[in-house]
Structure formats: structure tokens, C-alpha cells
Simulated scan of single mutants.
Amino acid sequence: MLGRTAHGLFWMCRCLERAENTARLLEAGFHMALTRDVATAEEEWRSVIEAFGQRAGYENKHGTYTGHQAWNYLLRDPDNATSVLAMIGAARTNARAVRNAISGELWEAINESWMEISRLLARPLAQNSVGEAVQIIRRAGTVVHGAMSGSMLRNEGFHFARAGTFVERADCVARILDMKYYLLLPSLSYVGTSLDTGQWDQVLRSVSGDRAFRWLNAGRIDARVIVEFLVLDDRFPRSLAFCHTALREELAALARMHGREGESNALMRESATRLSDLTIDGIFERGLHDFLRHFTQANNAIAKGIAEDYRFLS
């Protein structure tokens, strides 16, 4: 497979996953901001913008963090190169470039999702439209994943696409956790309060993990248990452990098909070893922020390794 085709498949799914995860995080921030006073609500929106590394771009355009400005910046602002609208457009562009490598059903799912979301985000959204927009974006992600799972040949293209999905998903979940621990909580004095509990609940909702977590933990909201669930529980398909286990399998399949391993496989084994040796006590003793920072760096290094191993720019 040509490097540019592999690149298109990988980034097709990274862009789709980023769009869906942006919508998920926006939804969590939206619900949290609705329950706060004006000053606290601005802090909530600042944390959401910062979680995706978009603070500089946002502040170049806006001087305050009102909800209307924040959600429109994340969803559709033409000056935001990583808005949901931009990411859906980039996913469609990549899908069109690799149409010979994907199924007709997958192309239709991506193209129809792009048309629906483009119409939805053609003009700024009012508060009463945000919930509907988030649901449509999340549903688009579900439809595309279903089309890929149900219609694509399990060849190189499938594995490159899946690798892109899990690289991006791991990055987003790590960012959401870091946002909660260092940005959302105003003060250590709030730990254990209703504000703290409410924020952790929204973190679970933002990764669609609230029902699974309650089923496993009888509804108990506790920071350590939630972090353990989102980092180490490989039964949950958005945990860091699950994402990197799945990513390792996709890279191993690609190595078998190419008859050799690359730098990305070596980096993946190192990450898997680190995660398998971790305990929740060890994470908190080290510091959650420090752990997440190193995990994100390792995840980015793996993504770069994939690009170099398979010559994405060739």
C-alpha cells in the first residue's frame, strides 16, 4: 500500500475521532457550565478550550469565555483549524482520496455525515441547539464506525484506519482526565464536595462511561476509582489501557503483513509494559498530571513512528 493511502486512512479516522471527542467534551462542559454562576461558567469553558490546546487561538479572537463564543469556536469557527466542522471536512477529504481502499458503505456514511453536519453548522448555534448538534455528531461517529466494522476487508487499510482511531481516542481521554485534575477543580478545598463529584460524573459522561462505571462500581463516585477505570480497565473501550492494547494489535497485524516490525512496534511494546506494571496507587504517588503528560508524549511518539515506518508522505 502506498504511503499516501495509508496516511489518508489513518487521518480519516483520526479526524473523525477528534470531531466526535470534541463534541463529547463540549457536551460535558456545556452541562457543567449550566449549573454554575457566570464567573465559574467562564472557567469551565476556558478549561474545555485549553484541554484541546486551543487557548492561544481562541484568545486571539475572543477576550472572554462565554458559552456562545466557546461552543461555536469548537464546533464551527472558520479560524479554528481543529473545529468539528473542519475535522469532519478533513475526514471526508481523506476518505475521498482513498475511495479505492474503503468500502462503498463507509464512503457513504462519511459523506452523508459531512453533508448533515455541514448544514447543521452553517450558521452560529444558539444554546437550545447545542444538545441536538452534539447528538448528531456523536451519532455520525457511531454510523461510520459501524460501516467500517461491517463492510471493510480486514486488510492493511482497515488496520491503518483502526490505528488512527485508537491513537486519537487515547489522546483525547488523557486530555479529558488532565483537564479535570488540573483545570476544572478550582481548589483542593473542593475535593470530595458536590462540585467535585459533579465534575467527575461529567468526565464519565464525556467518554460515555457513566453507565459502565456505575454497573461495575454500584454508583460510587470516587476519583481514584474513576481514574483506575479510565486508565487501567481494559474492559472499557475508551480506557487508555484498552486503546493501547487495541493499537498494539493493529500495529502487530501491519507488521505481519509487511514482514517486519518498525519503530512504532518497539514504542508500542514499551508503552504496553509501562501500563501493565501500573497500579492506581502508583499513578497517584507519581502524580496524575505527570503520568498523563508522559502518556500523551508516548502516544504522540507512536503516531510519529507509524508515519515514519510506513512513509506516510511518500
Results as ranks from 00 to 15, higher is better:
63 G>Q: 11
294 H>F: 10
126 A>V: 15
47 S>N: 06
78 P>L: 14
198 G>T: 05
288 L>W: 11
257 M>N: 03
157 G>L: 09
120 L>H: 02
74 L>E: 02
262 G>D: 08
183 L>Q: 13
43 E>P: 00
44 E>T: 14
276 S>K: 13
36 R>D: 00
149 S>T: 14
133 A>T: 12
10 F>E: 05
298 A>T: 08
307 A>L: 13
75 L>H: 04
29 G>W: 01
18 R>P: 07
10 F>L: 14
156 E>S: 08
240 L>Q: 08
217 N>K: 15
141 G>I: 02
49 I>M: 09
8 G>W: 07
279 T>V: 12
165 T>E: 05
19 A>M: 08
272 A>L: 11
305 G>K: 01
184 L>F: 02
297 Q>C: 12
52 F>V: 09
160 F>H: 04
254 L>T: 10
2 L>S: 07
302 I>H: 02
236 F>H: 07
152 M>C: 14
24 R>L: 02
275 L>A: 02
246 A>N: 07
82 T>R: 10
43 E>Q: 10
22 T>N: 07
157 G>R: 04
163 A>D: 06
233 D>P: 04
258 H>I: 04
163 A>R: 01
314 S>T: 08
108 E>Q: 12
297 Q>L: 15
145 H>R: 12
16 L>R: 08
270 E>N: 13
312 F>Q: 02
211 R>I: 13
284 F>P: 06
46 R>I: 01
98 V>D: 04
273 T>N: 12
12 M>I: 12
79 D>V: 14
252 A>Q: 14
74 L>C: 04
247 L>E: 01
251 L>I: 13
10 F>T: 05
244 H>I: 00
40 T>F: 03
244 H>K: 03
133 A>Y: 10
179 M>G: 09
77 D>I: 07
28 A>V: 01
148 M>T: 04
242 F>V: 05
5 T>R: 13
91 A>R: 00
277 D>Y: 09
85 L>A: 11
56 A>Q: 11
201 D>M: 15
34 L>T: 01
233 D>W: 04
149 S>P: 05
112 E>F: 03
73 Y>M: 05
86 A>L: 10
226 I>M: 05
104 G>N: 08
195 L>N: 00
161 A>S: 15
278 L>F: 06
251 L>D: 05
131 G>D: 12
13 C>A: 11
290 D>L: 14
180 K>W: 08
24 R>E: 02
279 T>S: 15
221 I>P: 03
291 F>H: 11
22 T>M: 15
285 E>F: 12
144 V>R: 01
290 D>R: 14
261 E>V: 07
19 A>I: 00
110 I>Q: 09
133 A>Q: 07
292 L>H: 10
107 W>N: 02
269 R>C: 06
227 V>I: 06
99 R>F: 05
148 M>A: 15
94 N>G: 05
31 H>S: 03
88 I>P: 00
149 S>K: 13
257 M>C: 07
233 D>N: 15
119 R>E: 15
172 C>G: 09
95 A>L: 02
276 S>N: 15
301 A>L: 10
41 A>C: 10
181 Y>Q: 13
242 F>G: 03
110 I>E: 01
78 P>R: 11
222 D>Y: 10
172 C>D: 08
280 I>L: 13
175 R>Q: 12
57 G>E: 10
71 W>L: 11
52 F>S: 02
10 F>N: 05
45 W>V: 00
220 R>T: 11
53 G>Y: 07
272 A>D: 01
175 R>I: 14
205 R>M: 09
12 M>R: 09
9 L>F: 09
291 F>M: 05
